[in-house]
Design a protein around this nucleic acid. Structure first.
Lengths: 247, 247
DNA sequence: CGGCTGATTGATCCCGGTCAAATGAGGTGG
DNA sequence: CCACCTCATTTGACCGGGATCAATCAGCCG
């Protein structure tokens, strides 16, 4: 499931992700790889990497594993507001606001690199392409967040779930986590329900509808999209907000 | 309604807004004021300031008037994903992604300052406090976007509308647009419906419920919050995500 | 084998959508 | 000044998507 890659390749998803957003300079790649190598950390499933209100004093980039950003209401209702996938950055520049307004939890065991604020600032001061790549990461995150607002506000359950699956598929592809049209999908139906604003029961029925329409296969933590075009069109999916196809 | 302030004070909302997020240096304020004075523009009601897909080559800060960010689905469903209020910045650093993934429309006549990319980059290169203030603006925008996801995904209609009103109230206060507990509120019920993911009909009924519960008055484009505490508690509102109360 | 978590199914209910029409408030031109 | 148009708000009647409640079932682990 999660074979341990050789040390040198661990930074790959991050480099690929940032390179998709902004072409990195060679020196930038080198210093990034060093920072990642020096900051490696592990954390298990179902733990908070950061909790709402915590002070942010470092930047974390995800090398492997899945996480989610979420907030809970006083009465327990939970909304997942985004997923965080390998190669993505949790909180670039978030220290500028001192504290975090939401929590980040792991959905799987996670390997990440923690870069202390001072070290991160030195990194981005030294290489403009790295600084801009991280800013693009932040800006794209905003764009994704906006798209989620549409998803939650204006799409029906079927469209909503289809849209989420399309988005995750697209986000996993540039970091090489799609094989054929399948990918590891370590998300419970409860998580999917909290991400789409649906109840678990209705989410389950919606998945069955997607399955019986021949659009997806989903079992044993593996998602296969059997008809991507059809899935995209039932989702009213348009990938431009992910900014994955730049010159 | 919109008295023309003397020239010198027009930049005030922007300065106050940015100062709330990050203490600006005196020199920063001066150069910011000059850039604003030189880039003044006007635009009427109901127009797109920028449309989805447009190339972004400047930064716009809003001096007066209201706007909204929105996206539409192919079949016409529209979701407003955020409002933009006086003092706020439309698209700081957005040129890093080249194009915009959503549209921004005016809800009133708007006075804004357009700062060309090169000029903006010079501005933020010269003064770190200005650069960071604009980054904070961007990060807070993300935080607001996340809170909207919760609003749309997990709050009931009554809570949802109450929450939006609380948020707008809090955002208008630091720029001095709340008098007593009232403010200009130039938003149609259709706009509110599109912002809360409700139908116009149900939004109307929800407003009536808030009115008859004695929480708000809303007529002739003026909103008065008659019981702010009650409104906040029916909304399950907690303002930390707005980052308005920093040391 | 019992206990736990996650997936699934069935039955029922209700929040909020849809449809349709009426009312009201400007705005405009004759 | 009034007829007329348009756009926003409001109301009523009905419907349906998705929530809720309650079991059942399937793995997995100790």
């Amino acid at each position: 499931m999660h074979p341990a890659p050789v040390e040198g390749s661990l930074a790959q998803p991050v480099i690929r992700r940032l390179n998709t957003l902004r072409r990195l300079s060679d020196e930038g790649v080198v210093s990034l790889e060093r920072a990642i190598r020096e900051g490696m950390q592990h954390i298990g499933t179902g733990e908070d990497l950061i909790s709402e209100g915590d002070t942010v004093s470092s930047v974390r980039v995800i090398l492997s594993g899945w996480l989610c950003r979420y907030k809970t209401l006083e009465d327990g209702r939970r909304q997942i507001v985004n997923f965080i996938l390998p190669g993505e950055t949790c909180d670039a520049y978030a220290y500028l606001l001192s504290t975090l307004d939401h929590s980040i939890a792991t959905l799987t065991p996670v390997v990440y690199a923690e870069v202390k604020r001072a070290q991160f600032e030195a990194l981005v001061a030294r290489d403009r392409s790295v600084a801009e790549a991280f800013w693009c990461e932040t800006l794209v995150n905003s764009a994704i967040q906006r798209e989620w607002a549409i998803n939650l506000g204006r799409r029906l359950a079927l469209e909503r779930v289809a849209h989420l699956l399309c988005e995750l598929h697209e986000r996993l592809r540039p970091v090489g986590l799609i094989e054929g049209n399948s990918c590891a999908f370590p998300v419970t139906q409860m998580d999917l329900a909290d991400a789409t604003g649906l109840s678990v029961v209705h989410l389950n029925r919606t998945l069955q509808e997607l399955r019986s329409a021949g659009l997806i296969l989903l079992r044993e933590r593996t998602l296969t999209i059997t008809d991507l075009d059809a899935l995209k069109s039932t989702a009213l999916f348009s990938p431009n907000y992910l900014y994955l196809y730049r010159a």
